[in-house]
Amino acid sequence: MYRMKKSHAPALAGLIFIMPLVSACHPDGARPTLSGAELYDSSCKQCHGATGQGQLGITTPAIAGQAAWYVEGQLVKFRTGVRGAHPEDYDGLRMRPMSQQLMNVAEVKAVSAYVATLKPRKQPTTLQGGDATAGAGHYGVCLACHGPDGKGNELLKAPSLVGQHDWYLFSQLKKFKAGVRGKHPKDLTGGQMQPMSMTLVDDQAIKNVLAHISTLSK
């Protein structure tokens, strides 16, 4: 029964040998690049949803179909604290750390390209009392940059508004108006948006223009 009594010494010696050997296989630096889809799955899906449609419960916007240059630009802004670093920007402060899950600019580009391939969808209306015809008038100001079809314009750095939730656009317009978004000195495009948002004098005007925008997406 006790015949193997002396056997622990060699085992011990063997182990002491193994440990530094394994430590020597330092896989650091071997950092394989993940595909955009894998990055989206691991870092974005939980909040923005598998199809990028966003969720009202956690106030995440729809990002499906947004142009790659825009997603990339916003991710860079979040990562560098140009967007989402205002003390009053509750949701922005949640997004800012999430953007830092991406390890480098290459990953930002990859995931942005993937987001652009997701299909935008018409979102259900959640705001009541918006007058689309009155909103069409207000939209005149927006039209110059975001285009008559609301699909945005890369030259003017204006994002697409199609397929976005009305409650999200509402909250962002309010943030622009209050200087919670677009106030950072390095946020040039946000800084352009800020005076534009001022043309919508009150909540009713915002609702009207959002009612019009929702007619743009099908």
């Binding site: 896989p27 950092r31 993940l34 894998e38 691991s42 870092s43 939980q46 750390p97 899950q101 390890m103």
Partner: peptide, 15 residues
């Protein structure tokens, strides 16, 4: 090894 694709699992995100 932050950010590595763990063999058998993949990228471990914050979540």
């Amino acid at each position: 090894f932050p950010g590595m694709s763990v063999p058998g699992y993949g990228r471990v995100s914050a979540g």
